[in-house]
Structure formats: C-alpha cells, structure tokens
Amino acid sequence: MTDAARRWRMALGPAANGPLPEPEGEAAKQDEVLTWLYQQSPSARGGGLGGTEPSRPEALHWLGRVRKLFPKSTCQRIEADALNRFRLADLLADPEVLARIEPSPATLRLLLSLRGSLPPALMALLRDTVRRVVDEITARLRPRIELALSGQRNRQVRGRLPRAADFDARRTLFGNLHRIDPDTGRLVPDRLFFHGRQRPSLPWQVILCVDQSGSMTDSVIHSAVMAAILSGLPGIHVRMVLFDTQVVDVSDRLTDPLETLMTVRLGGGTDIGAAMQYCAGLVEDPARSVLVLISDFCEGGSTRRLETQVAQLVEARVRLLGLAALDDRGDPFHDHRVAARLADLGMQIGAMTPDRLAGWLAEVMT
C-alpha cells in the first residue's frame, strides 16, 4: 500500500475497504485503535461520561497501544479527541493524560463535569490540571479587563499619555488643522492629544449573579475568572453568587477562581427570582451598584417573582445588566421572551466576551 493510500485508509476507516486494500502489519494495528475511537458507538467503546470500573482496563489498554503506534504529537491529538469529543473519562485514570492536557475552556468544562465521579486519589491531579487551565485563561484576560477598568475617562484632563485606548481623535484633528499638506491634502499632526483618566472617588459594588445550570458552563468559568480580576482592582467591591434552585454565596473565595469553580454544581433546575432576591439583599448603595445577571433566562421558578424583583431594583437605581453568554465566543442561548420582558423593565441585555463586559461595566459606572 502506498503512503497516500495508507493515509486515505486511516482517514476513511473500514468504509474504505472496497476501493482501498486492507492495511497490513503496523498500519493494521494503527487502523484498529483509530477505529475503536472514531468508528464505534460509545457503548462499544465501553466509555462515556463519568466512567465505570469495568471499562477502565479497556480504555487504558487502548491508550497504551496508541502511544506505541503513533508519534507523540499524534498521540496528543488522539487523546484530546478521546477526552473532549468522546468524553472517555476513564483516560483520566492515567496521570500522564492529566499532565498533558492542553489548557482550554473545553478541557475545563469536561474536568468540572467529571470531578464528582473520579477516584479520590486523582482529585489532587485534577486540581492541578484545572489550576493550569484557569491560570491560562486569567493571564489572557487580565490585561484587557484591567485596561478597560483602569479608570473612567475624564475628557477635561488631557495630556501626552501613551495609551492607544485614550487617543482623542477629535481633539487631535481640530488641534492640527493648520498642519494639512496642501499637495496631498493629508493631515500631518505635530501634536497628539489623549484623554486623561481619573479614579472614581467613591467605590462601586459589582454583584455577579451566575446561573450554574448545565448550558452555562462556559459562562460560569469566565465569571469566576472575571470576579477574581475585578476583586483585585481598586475602587471595586465584588460579590458573587451561584444559583440553580439554591443560592450559594462564594464571595469569600473570589481571589482564587479554582476554589470558586470547585464549588460549582453543574446542572439542576433554575430559580432566577430567588437568586435576584438574594442579590438585592447584598446591595449597599443602590446608586453605586451594578448587578450582573449571567443566565440563559430559562426561569424554572415564578416569572412574576423575577419581574417584581427586577422592577424593584430598577426603581432603587441599581444598574442591571443581563448576559445570555459570557465566554470567548459570546454566542447566546437564552429564553428570548423572558429576556425581552426584563429588558422592558429596565435591565440591559447582551451577550459578550469578558473583555467586552469590562468595557460595558466601565460605561455604566460613569
């Protein structure tokens, strides 16, 4: 079999037996382990969400064969597919798999969903892996969030601040009209103007009210990271609660997103009204408070109770933001009817990435 034919056979699997000859020797072994993962049903693989003791030897035997038959880079791709696409939790019984997991929100989603089904001996390794993923997300988001919330713009104070985000295009244009090149018609400024920034004199309170139902996993992850970053900024006091049909206040552990995430109980029902009522009790100064509801708005409790609570918060002058999604994509999935009703009552509704939420917070806290 030529190298090209062998590659096509690997890509197409057993369905290619007609037009392509069956693999032989080591190629046949490679084809067998790939077929076990990519061609069989979950029941045939013996794996699945949560993992079971009887299937573990087969999964780990398969993993051992993969490592013998393929180069390291290929093994890492196959292992990632086994974990993320096919959710073979049994592979997490191998410490080498945990050690090589690439940091990503997708990986973190899987680990959080499986943590309750893993043997206690693996929990320490699980925490280390989750920590790596959380640290990677935090390192990526922190500069953007800190820039957006480093101070409110004060258009009365201008100077030569070397920040692109503070560039005052209008002032620069009018201040350099005399510098237009008559030959080209282009503006050649000799002085650039920037908005100055000043810290707010009074602190703001930001309350994150986060739905921990199964569809909100990405939003829960980014909310925990967002809360940790916000809590380290001056002039902002952060509270965070997680809810399904119960409300859990995690404000005492915001500096460590890992500890927040290990509190999460993904799945279950949803009572947004009860969560909003609890958050209302946390408000200290309504005029300087922002309550951010992060939810799919699929209310399982009383919609009237939710609407009443939102109306009361709006009347008290609390700034209300409702997010249908908070992740790297900002793709919303939510109950449009409930979201529209809350918008009519005065809650601003959106779906966005964490750095855009930081910009939105900066706008409402002016």
Results as ranks from 00 to 15, higher is better:
residue 4 A to T: 14
residue 7 R to T: 11
residue 10 M to W: 13
residue 10 M to N: 13
residue 11 A to K: 11
residue 11 A to G: 03
residue 12 L to A: 14
residue 23 P to I: 04
residue 24 E to A: 15
residue 25 G to Q: 13
residue 26 E to H: 05
residue 30 Q to G: 00
residue 34 L to S: 14
residue 34 L to Y: 10
residue 36 W to M: 06
residue 39 Q to P: 10
residue 42 P to F: 10
residue 47 G to P: 02
residue 57 P to L: 01
residue 57 P to D: 03
residue 60 L to E: 02
residue 64 G to Q: 09
residue 77 R to E: 12
residue 85 R to F: 00
residue 86 F to C: 04
residue 91 L to W: 13
residue 93 A to P: 01
residue 98 L to Y: 04
residue 108 L to S: 01
residue 109 R to W: 09
residue 110 L to K: 03
residue 112 L to R: 00
residue 120 P to V: 04
residue 120 P to K: 07
residue 133 V to C: 15
residue 135 D to P: 03
residue 138 T to H: 01
residue 140 R to E: 13
residue 145 I to E: 03
residue 148 A to I: 00
residue 156 Q to K: 15
residue 161 L to V: 13
residue 170 R to M: 12
residue 171 R to T: 07
residue 178 H to I: 05
residue 185 G to F: 08
residue 195 H to E: 08
residue 208 L to T: 01
residue 208 L to S: 09
residue 209 C to G: 09
residue 213 S to F: 02
residue 213 S to L: 04
residue 215 S to F: 04
residue 218 D to I: 08
residue 219 S to Y: 05
residue 219 S to W: 06
residue 227 A to Q: 00
residue 230 L to H: 02
residue 232 G to W: 01
residue 233 L to E: 02
residue 241 V to R: 10
residue 243 F to V: 06
residue 244 D to R: 05
residue 245 T to L: 03
residue 245 T to F: 05
residue 247 V to C: 04
residue 263 T to E: 12
residue 278 Y to S: 05
residue 279 C to K: 03
residue 280 A to T: 05
residue 292 V to R: 01
residue 302 S to Q: 07
residue 312 Q to W: 10
residue 317 R to D: 02
residue 318 V to L: 00
residue 320 L to N: 04
residue 327 D to S: 07
residue 327 D to V: 08
residue 331 D to T: 15
residue 337 R to C: 12
residue 344 D to Q: 14
residue 361 L to F: 07
residue 363 E to D: 15
